[in-house]
């Protein structure tokens, strides 16, 4: 079984004082049969990493290899194992039909016509594209266009699959289809690298998650281990904007965000339910006007927010 191994990857845009280190010593290990989610805020280097792994972007340092193949030295062999959806629906020809796109891209990757036809039919059934196989892609819904792009990337049975924001702009049904497909691809033996801002997707499909900040991996492990990084229990307190400053002073470890109503949302984690309750009680005693309190298990989103905010973890994730 092969693996995508990225070691100390570095990508710098610009020179001198204006140089920007988009990726700064990022390392990943993604064996076949595994789904790895790359999480990070905008500009953290996720897409740059995926583009480097797809060999459409040159990097300045480090190494990339899949199944021992370096894309710089064995580009053709590396690419024959790779499938990628990088720009979603923009990756397919809108003036061709769904089937025509699938067979065209399969041909570009060296597949025979008969094999491509069979594979297109198989993927159409799997992705729910059968009713639209003969429709021009330009006339399809956004969700179906995205599915066609995914099908095109899967035609040649890639061993390494790179999916950059595969559910961006999709409706619930289409997200569900992608969500059930990704683990199935890994079960078929593919190594799948997914980037997304959709925490539910990442949590549902990934065996491993790597959190990226400023071009480097700051934490990685299974979704469960990342969730537990900052404690076993979570507390979320929603307060009006007028009470936000007092709350910040009281809970220096909490991650603050704003909701659409202008309220401040403070999220924090605690080792036990009792500790979480004590925190809530302290807020109440201080007389801060509280709009809402929620006690529960920490989500991946909680852990992610804490990690990118630079909060110290209680232990290293595995």
């Amino acid at each position: 079984m092969g693996a995508l191994i990225i070691g100390g990857l570095a990508k710098i845009y610009g020179k001198g004082a204006s140089a920007c280190r988009a990726v700064d010593g990022l390392s990943l290990n993604l064996p076949q049969g595994t789904v790895l989610g790359l999480l990070g805020p905008n500009g953290s280097g996720k897409t740059t990493t995926v583009k480097c792994a797809a060999s459409i972007l040159d990097y300045d340092g480090g190494s990339i290899a899949f199944d021992g193949l370096d894309p710089r030295r064995n580009r053709a062999r590396y690419l024959s194992r790779l499938g990628a959806v990088l720009e979603g629906a923009r990756n397919v020809h809108w003036r061709l039909g769904a089937r025509e796109n699938m067979e065209y891209f399969a041909g570009l990757r060296g597949m025979g016509r008969k094999d491509a036809r069979g594979r297109a039919a198989e993927l159409a059934a799997r992705l729910g594209l059968e009713p639209v196989m003969n429709t021009l892609v330009g006339r399809l819904s956004r969700g179906n266009q995205q599915r066609v792009a995914l099908a095109c990337a899967l035609m040649h049975r890639p061993q390494l699959l790179l999916l950059d924001e595969p559910t961006l702009g999709l409706d619930v049904g289409s997200v569900e289809a992608v969500r059930s497909l990704i683990p199935a691809l890994a079960r078929d033996g593919a190594a799948v690298l997914v980037t997304s801002h959709d925490m539910h997707l990442i949590e549902a499909v990934c065996d491993k998650v790597a959190v990226v900040r400023s071009g480097a991996v700051i934490a990685d492990g299974s979704p469960a281990s990342l969730r537990a990084l900052f404690g076993a229990h979570s507390l979320r307190v929603r307060v009006p904007a007028s009470g936000a400053e007092r709350m910040s002073g009281m809970l220096p470890g909490a991650v603050r965000s704003e909701d659409e109503d202008g309220h401040a949302l403070f999220s924090m984690q605690a080792d036990s339910a009792t500790a979480a309750l004590e925190l809530a009680a302290a807020v109440h005693r201080a007389g801060v006007p509280v709009a809402d309190v929620e006690l529960g298990r920490p989500s991946l989103e909680d852990a992610f927010k804490q990690l990118v905010a630079g909060q110290p973890a209680k232990e290293t994730a595995r």
Partner: peptide
């Protein structure tokens, strides 16, 4: 249109195409 990246991923290379 955005299809060039996929063309570039062909193991054959862009120039022969």
């Amino acid at each position: 249109k955005g299809t060039f990246e996929q063309l570039y991923l062909s193991p054959l290379g862009v120039v022969p195409i």
